[in-house]
């Protein structure tokens, strides 16, 4: 197995683990971590592909994703805080008054 194929496989596994976590876990903080995991899975794949192609575009993309992930974490935590103040819980299932 080449380094590229291995890195791509790890990237895919990370991404899928993150996606599974978002769907399964009920604690918002864990869900946030899983979202980061998905982005990092994509990051790893980008780096591996850029390395294989000898093309910088993929590596540059990773820097932008890192910045986006940071912004996303900030916004996400702010929203979690807001939910906690209203509902006194960070469980996704309990914060559910809208339906129909």
């Amino acid at each position: 197995m080449t380094v590229t194929a291995f890195s791509l496989a790890v990237g895919l596994v990370l991404f899928l683990l993150g996606a599974l976590g978002v769907l399964v876990r009920r604690n918002v903080l864990i869900v946030l971590m899983c979202l980061e995991l998905m982005l990092n899975g994509a990051n790893l794949s980008f780096v591996a592909l850029a390395q294989a192609f000898g093309d910088l575009a993929g590596q540059v993309f990773v820097f932008f994703i890192l910045a986006i992930a940071a912004a996303e974490a900030a916004v996400g935590l702010a929203i979690v805080l807001c939910v906690f103040r209203n509902y006194r819980t960070v469980d996704v299932n309990e914060a559910a008054s809208l339906h129909g």
Binding site: V22, L35, M38, E72, V75, I79, C82, V83, V92, A96
Partner: peptide, 13 residues
């Protein structure tokens, strides 16, 4: 708050 949480999680997903 609830709308924002749902939008954020599903949107980021």
């Amino acid at each position: 708050a609830e709308g924002a949480l749902k939008y954020f999680i599903l949107g980021s997903f």
